[in-house]
Design a binder for these strands. Structure first.
Length: 851
RNA sequence: GGGCGCGUAGCUCAGUGGGAGAGCGCUCGCUUCACACGCGAGAGGUCGCUGGUUCGAAACCAGCCGUGCCCACCA
């Protein structure tokens, strides 16, 4: 440490993260520590693929927690000397990104159609070039030690090759196919979306009962529906085959009101006899259930609602109306004909688009699908066999349940931004070509080719993330060194959307699991327990937290909050992190400015030295174990309490006289303890620990690549721990007694020791002189006999004594009761009974002394 | 409809069979030469309710009440 450094340490009594973080991060980048060589095997190395944030994204609390977890593990393993790679990149996020750019266009009064596909896509790339790095910079603010030199994007050239290879292979295997099928149509994004992008919301609708006259009869069949507007596309009425009421009608026909079409009356088990009238109108073109019933019975599939969410030409006089308008008009027309038998409010759950927020229209359309059952089978097995371990364990079952009932995945989207599906059509000979690179002309007839208009679901490309980012399908050094990756963490909401699919594609393509461990972390809720969301205004900006409290504080706070269940954001935990950073700084100042010039090393000379070293090594072992078990809250909690309580509150106070004396042994021990604390906390609080490391005599390069502490078991000393903890407890009893006896805080009291001599620090830290003599003691606290003095308030002392007697009496009573219970003595384990006996004896003795 | 979880100090949460814990907040006392983002001391809880198992239950079992999330094609 030079003079300038010493001056800075002496003067800076408060740690200021804003002055430190940018500088330290630049040093790490310059050192190239985050860019490991692609050497060694995946077993020797440590690698993590970041859940790629959307290019349109801004760092939110979920990213911050997710990043804090990954960085803690990546840094710990980097410090252990492993090649540690944290793969970084962004996701092109089809719908979201396209929507952002379309919104900008709208400000100019244009739509994407005004530009045309090519110009529009060009515009999105421009947008990406300008704003796409924002989220990456925000990860740097957090201190994330990602490999920024290997940044990837799901639409970069190499990545597109991976996507096209996968499409081609799956197509050739027959897993990918094109079909006219019922899909979730999102009128907001004008695209089909997958089942996983749909969320159900409770909605209050009106349930209409409508009379459908039975052909050649006076009878009517009353059906119940919340969507009368779809009746225009009805092609049957169904009843349950076991329904006595309608048995005779099955096989006959009804006449569709307003339209006049003949509808067969069919029987199907799906119909619930109890619900409504037990008769169900069947609209295969606009209802998922009806679609399936329709296919089963070979019914016509009519459509009256268009992709724009309005009534289509097929709706005749209702064409062009919105759905709501059509519903009003149709109900009015039915009412006029006297067909409405009943209307009642009805609350049910209805699908909405997760993306656009609009109500899903089930529509039949021509889409690309991927059959999932064959892909799922091995992905189920690796999780069943714990080759991919999912933590917490309850998510393993959720994963397996879902995978076992997996359904085909609709992978096409009617968007422009994304991987355009690598399929070409020849209009001349109707040939369909699937290829990894664009073919020049039709191979069959030489005709012109036209590429499929649709793009792939964004999750189709994300599913390849762990290996596509490493260069697959090429055999790259990165792939050899870092695949399978070690670890993946995410919130549970993308367990199916992403995690499951990566396992499936990983096994199918590189032929190995994509990661060994999946840790499903908490969802951080707003302070009031609501969801954090931009639209609700409940979001808390991690960057603001970093500005105010520092990245270390936020990282510590988030890890301290994290749990196996959802948690509310806690300002107190972030503040605890900030206070810890400050405490680290100040304790380090005390040590670094006062220690003698010695090599850091454990050099215990007395029981308290052996105690702190034992506690230190125990803490190193325990914190490491907890980090490796993804028990972050307890890991940081233990590190915190060791440092604050044991090291600062007790050890530093105990050794101050020796430290100020310039004693070499205690200097060496303190520097050793500090080095290990900095190393242990660096994965969680990288900035402050790195900054302090600058002043540490053991410094030889950055802490980011210094050795992570490994517990030294030879320093464990249970006897020293017991002795010193006894001394601490006695000190606390003495202090409490003083306080309650009304002794001024600064006064020193005279006392004698009767019995076992306590550790030497007890007297000083409790402000007692143990060498008094002569007078009759006025109180007994453990082995300490307090002698009379004018600082004592006789009344308070007497009150204190009486209070203690009462405590002891109740303790004795409790012990006697317990040991008097024959069942307890006979059936409880011997050591438990023995412990009770000893306690009772102790309390009886003390009570006797006080009598 | 199925599944998972939660209900412990004023607040946010730990604690899974042997005497109720942490952080914050609160009260009292400290300008003690690292830190007031600090130091010392303290108050505060019939562990949702009711039964059961056990010598012993916050913890295990059953039921109930409250609350959150996920999955699901009953109009």
């Amino acid at each position: 440490m030079d003079a300038a450094q010493r001056k800075k340490l002496e003067e800076t009594t408060r740690y200021d993260p804003s002055e430190v973080e940018g500088r330290i991060f630049a040093e790490w980048m310059e050192g190239g520590y985050f860019h490991p060589q692609a050497e060694g095997s995946p077993e020797e190395n440590f690698s993590v693929a970041i859940p790629p944030p959307n290019v349109t994204g801004a760092l939110h609390m979920g990213h911050a927690l997710n990043g804090s977890i990954q960085d803690a593990l990546v840094r710990m393993n980097r410090m252990r000397g492993r090649n540690a790679l944290w793969i970084l990149g962004t996701d092109h996020a089809g719908i979201a990104t396209q929507a952002v750019v379309e919104k900008e266009l709208r400000k100019e009064g244009k739509t994407r159609h005004d530009l045309g596909r090519e110009a529009f896509v060009e515009k999105v790339w421009e947008w990406k070039a300008e704003y796409g790095s924002r989220i990456v910079e925000q990860y740097q603010r957090l201190g994330a030690s990602c490999d920024y030199q290997r940044e990837r994007f799901t639409l970069d050239e190499g990545y597109v090759r991976a996507v096209y290879r996968v499409f081609k292979v799956l197509f050739d295997k027959g897993y990918i196919y094109r079909d006219n099928y019922m899909v979730n149509w999102d009128p907001g994004s004008h695209s089909a979306i997958s089942d996983l992008e749909v969320e159900n919301r409770e909605v209050e609708d009106v349930l209409y009962s409508i009379d459908y006259p039975v052909e050649d009869s006076d009878q009517v069949l009353t059906v119940a529906t919340v969507r009368p507007e779809t009746m225009l596309a009805d092609t049957a009425v169904a009843v349950n085959p076991d329904d006595e009421r309608y048995r005779d009608l099955v096989g006959k026909h009804c006449v569709l009101p307003l339209v006049g079409r003949r509808l067969p009356i069919i029987a199907d088990e799906h119909v619930d006899i109890e619900f409504g009238t037990g008769a169900l109108k069947i609209t295969p073109g606009h209802d998922v259930n009806d679609f399936e019933i329709g296919r089963k019975h070979g019914l016509d599939e009519l459509g009256v609602i268009g992709p724009d969410g309005r009534m289509s030409e097929e709706a005749g006089e209702y064409a062009g109306m919105t759905i709501a308008e059509a519903q009003t008009a149709i109900v009015a027309a039915l009412r006029e004909e006297g067909r409405i038998r009943a209307e009642e409010p009805y609350t049910h759950s209805v699908p909405f688009s997760h993306r656009s927020g609009e109500r899903i229209e089930p529509l039949i359309s021509l889409q690309w699908f991927c059959r999932m059952d064959e892909l799922a089978r091995p992905a189920i097995e690796v999780v069943e066999r714990d080759e991919v371990r999912i933590t917490p364990a309850q998510w393993k079952r959720v994963y397996l349940d879902w995978m076992r009932e997996i359904r085909p995945w609709c992978i096409s989207r009617q968007l422009w931004w994304g991987h355009r599906i690598p399929v070409w059509y020849c209009d001349a000979c109707e040939e369909t070509i699937v290829a990894e690179t664009e073919p020049e002309r039709c191979g069959a007839c030489g005709g012109e080719l036209r590429q499929e208009e649709d793009v792939l679901d964004t999750w189709f490309s994300s599913a390849l993330w762990p290996f596509a980012t490493l260069g697959w399908p090429d055999e790259t050094p990165e792939l050899r060194a870092f695949y399978p990756t070690s670890f993946l963490t995410t919130a549970r909401e993308i367990l199916f959307l992403w995690v499951a699919r990566m396992i499936m594609t990983g096994l199918e393509f590189p032929g190995a699991i994509p990661f060994r461990d999946v840790y499903v972390h908490s969802v951080i809720q707003a302070r009031d327990g609501r969801r954090m969301s931009k639209s609700l205004g409940t979001g808390i900006d991690p960057l603001e937290e970093i500005d105010v409290h520092g990245a270390d504080a936020l990282r510590f706070g988030l890890l301290a909050m994290s749990s196996t269940q959802d948690v509310r954001f806690s300002d107190a935990k972030v503040q605890q992190g900030r206070d810890l950073a400050n405490k680290l700084w100040n304790a380090s100042r005390l040590i670094l400015l006062n220690t003698a010039e010695v090599e850091p090393a454990p050099r215990p000379t007395c029981v308290e030295d052996r105690w702190i070293l034992s506690r230190l090594e125990r803490t190193v072992a325990s914190v490491t174990e907890k980090l490796e078990a993804y028990d972050f809250a307890h890991a940081v909690g233990e590190a915190y309490s060791f440092f604050w309580r044991d090291l600062c509150d007790w050890y530093l106070e105990i050794v101050k006289p020796r430290l100020y004396d310039g004693e070499e042994e205690v200097s060496a021990t303190l520097l050793y303890a500090l080095e290990r604390v900095l190393g242990l906390l660096h994965p969680v609080m990288p900035f402050v620990t790195e900054e302090i490391w600058n002043y540490h005599p053991a410094r030889d390069g950055h802490l980011a690549v210094h050795a992570f502490p490994v517990a030294d078991e030879s320093l464990l000393d249970a006897a020293a721990e017991e002795d010193v903890e006894g001394g601490i407890a006695l000190t606390q009893r003495l202090r409490a007694w003083r306080d309650l006896a009304g002794v001024p805080a600064g006064a020193t009291l005279a006392a004698v020791v009767d019995g076992v001599e306590p550790p030497s620090f007890v007297g000083r830290l409790s402000r007692f002189e143990f060498d008094g003599a002569g007078a009759e003691p006025v109180a007994a606290i453990g082995p300490v006999r307090v002698l009379p003095s004018e600082e004592l308030d006789a009344e308070a002392v007497a009150a204190r004594l009486e209070k203690r007697r009462a405590e002891l009496r109740s303790e004795v009573e409790r012990g006697e009761r317990k040991l008097g219970n024959e069942g307890f003595v006979a059936k409880a384990p011997a050591e438990v009974v023995e412990e009770e006996r000893l306690k009772l004896e102790r309390y009886r003795n003390e009570l006797e002394e006080l009598a």
